[in-house]
Design a protein around this nucleic acid. Structure first.
Lengths: 225, 225
DNA sequence: TAAAATGTTCAGGTTACGTTCAGATTAAAT
DNA sequence: ATTTAATCTGAACGTAACCTGAACATTTTA
């Protein structure tokens, strides 16, 4: 974990850096707003600690500038003054937390840990297979980068196949996994949905995503890109 | 945004609830740890505010229990005592932030806003998506640079969708996050508000911001500028 | 207190989707 | 080569899900 610490009080800066390094962080320091902002845009930080009262450029402006440039790492504001307006201004500028000096170093590290824990988070729920990509969270599908809109059941079927790439799935199995209650198995719904999927995903049949294994079922072919 | 407020001082509870509702939050309250814990497990909250000193079950235990049960919404701890050990204990139990009484209500709402934004991966209080831009602080909305005035519920709905861009949200989920107490789910309020939003944000339907996924819900489409 | 704005319900119109069907194609079996 | 069964394919249909304008109810503002 790499941190940026922007603090003009050199004694405090040194102490905090020491404490943070004890907690196994890598720490870069800056002593004024300008170089803090520069550093923040140049390196990939996991979090930043920024004093409000800084030479050249004040802390609030640094935070605003970073957020404007779409940097999203967590930021903790340090404020010497015990004025709640300052804290609110910091949070409104895009900071995630603040600490009022003086504070116990344990407080800083506890908050840092909580913030960083939260800012990392869920892996992206995307399944890819060659030109096909599906996002299970947004239930969206794209082929060769362009979106394809599927109906509910079309999507369910595709998702199941994408989750079992290269496995042959019989119509019975597909039916069971797509419908909750048991369903009339004499129906040809699966055939119809497979047809519609093929048409939507691959109108010119140039890929042949879904293979038919007569008597056995269907298979989503694996593409080694 | 739906909040849970657990506070046994009824006067403070009332004041905070009023203040939070002014900020357009839907607020459920509890006055002891036991019912707070129960409520927290029963409804889908976007954040919780929990006092440390509570009857029946103390705040720390409530937080621990919620985190044990895998609830991940942000939690802010209120502490009457000015002891940093208490704060650290709260954070270690799984809280994301704390406030020491007495505090200014503005501080609470500023921190809440920041936390909720952060919890959905949004660092800045301004959320942009193609031609739409909303400011979660001033609750103002603009499309193509010109202001659009929304009613309270219209805004709540839009904000929730903007905080979850590209995610499909069912009418049930939308209802739960927009209203506090449970609400008649047979109603078609969501449909009506979606309709009004579409009309106000995109009168000529040239953008199609909000997509309908039949049987699943609505989705705020991501615009890659 | 009246008027305006907002929230909520209602009812009828519209459409997308799931489902079925029937005939055409294809592959396997004899 | 002929038969048979499995799959393909386009189209049709009925039904919820959704849309939509307006009415009614409630809260806020003047």
């Amino acid at each position: 974990m790499r941190l940026l610490l922007v603090e003009d009080d050199l004694e405090l800066q040194g102490n905090l850096k020491k404490q943070l390094m004890l907690e196994n962080y890598s720490v870069d320091v800056a002593s004024d707003g300008e170089s803090g902002l520069f550093q923040g845009t140049e390196h990939p930080y996991d979090a930043a600690i920024i004093d409000i009262g800084l030479p050249i450029i004040d802390g609030i402006s640094v935070i605003k500038a970073l957020r404007d440039k779409q940097f999203t790492f967590p930021i903790i504001v340090l404020t010497a003054r015990d004025s709640w307006q300052d804290k609110v201004a910091g949070l409104d500028a895009g900071a995630d937390d603040y600490l009022t000096k003086p504070f116990h170093p344990e407080e800083l590290t506890a908050r840092l840990n909580a913030l960083i824990r939260r800012s990392v988070g869920q892996a992206s729920p995307v399944i890819e297979n060659g030109p096909i990509s599906i996002n299970t969270k947004s239930m969206s599908v794209s082929v060769d980068g362009s979106d394809v809109s599927l109906s509910s059941y079309e999507y369910k079927l595709l998702e199941y196949l994408m989750l079992h790439i290269n496995e042959v799935k019989s119509k019975t199995v597909l039916t069971e996994h797509i419908y909750d209650q048991d369903f009339d198995l004499d129906s040809n719904v699966i055939e119809v949905f497979i047809r519609r999927l093929r048409k939507k995903l691959d109108p010119e049949s140039k890929y042949g995503f879904i293979e038919t294994l007569r008597g056995q079922g269907y298979k989503m072919k694996a593409f080694t890109v």
